[in-house]
Design a protein around this nucleic acid. Structure first.
Lengths: 201, 201
DNA sequence: CCTACCGATCGGTAGG
DNA sequence: CCTACCGATCGGTAGG
């Protein structure tokens, strides 16, 4: 019997990291414990520990797994839409749908991680900040295209719009988790459309 | 020497609860530990424990202290403004100022508590949900007055507006904590004004 | 408000 | 991937 190959170990790691993301979306990345996760995946604590080497490395891998899920489920389906307003509108649907289907059982992982680490300097906060920046940048770029194309009022600040859309999606997710009423996604959808249209009336 | 009076004990409790709110705004309500807090307030762990009787009761008192701070610092200064749009505008300033001054060192306590407990059923989640509902209701009521007065577009849903304002204030707070750039409050201010004016252009 | 404890669990190590 | 540990810390208790 040879030792398990590096590829097999990487696969195990990835599976564990995805289970960890589910758990951490509920309990938080800091609330994640190696013992608790080991029970979920039916391994011994020390086995799981040796897969990652430290709790921080497990947290990092968990963040990565959550980003991968988000990218696949939210961005993937709309990546081929026309950049600008058409893709932004499709993205908002995809995004809210992701939270409504509860792909992550505890709601928006990135918001949870942001709120959890925003006031705790360290490598995890830096990683969260970078992920969030990249996401807001993607929103900003499509907003800029939409303004350029005349699909949004001239003078709109694309970064303002990115900030607004992100704030609304996050609030829909935690509001849904808190009250368990999916009508909040309709509310968020109206608010997003208003932001994208540039007004209420 | 008589035993400490009930009033003196209540005062100690209140002081500890406010120190706990500061700590929990950074570490989270679940991350709060009796031992860590005891070091902050220079008491023994068991003394602090006996003040509250359980960790859950300490968490409850901490939530209460945070709400009291928010009410005093955010709502207090604008309570006497004219209900409707004038008070909403003043409230947004007061609210963003509260987060910019970092009255709570870790940012918006209620958002932290919401995101922390939204997916964990139990008495703390119920309490967080009730506090959040009361706050959104206050925003909704002033929005309704503003619409009635013709200061906002007819047909505006006051609950949508409350949702938007809350989403934006929360996002400003965690964005500021994450990036330490106070310009995000200008961004949030523009977004709130737009929401209150009903449009971009 | 204190000293002196309790069992359970934490992250992590040794060694196979 | 396992058994068998480690010191530290957790929430909580007994008794003053």
């Amino acid at each position: 019997m040879p030792r398990r190959s590096a590829a097999a170990v990487a696969e195990t790691r990835s599976g564990v990291a995805h289970a960890a993301a589910d758990r951490a979306s509920v309990e938080g990345l800091e609330g994640l414990t190696i013992g608790g996760l080991a029970a979920d995946v039916e391994m011994r604590k020390s086995s799981l520990f040796s897969l990652f080497g430290s709790k921080e490395e497990l947290q990092r891998a968990t963040l990565e797994a959550a980003v991968e899920s988000f990218r696949r489920e939210v961005w993937g389906p709309v990546a081929d839409e026309e950049p600008g307003l058409p893709r932004l509108l499709a993205l908002c649907e995809s995004w809210l749908g992701y939270h409504e289907r509860e792909v992550m059982p505890g709601g928006c992982f990135l918001t949870t991680a942001t709120v959890e680490f925003d006031a705790r300097p360290g490598p995890l906060r830096d990683e969260v900040a970078e992920i969030m920046e990249r996401w807001l940048d993607a929103l900003r770029r499509d907003s800029a295209v939409a303004i350029e194309a005349g699909d949004l009022p001239a003078g709109t600040d694309p970064a303002d719009l990115a900030f607004e859309l992100n704030a609304l999606a996050a609030a829909a997710s935690y509001g849904f988790q808190l009250w368990r009423d999916p009508k909040i996604f309709d509310r968020a959808r109206r608010s997003m459309r208003r932001a994208l249209r540039g007004g209420r009336g």
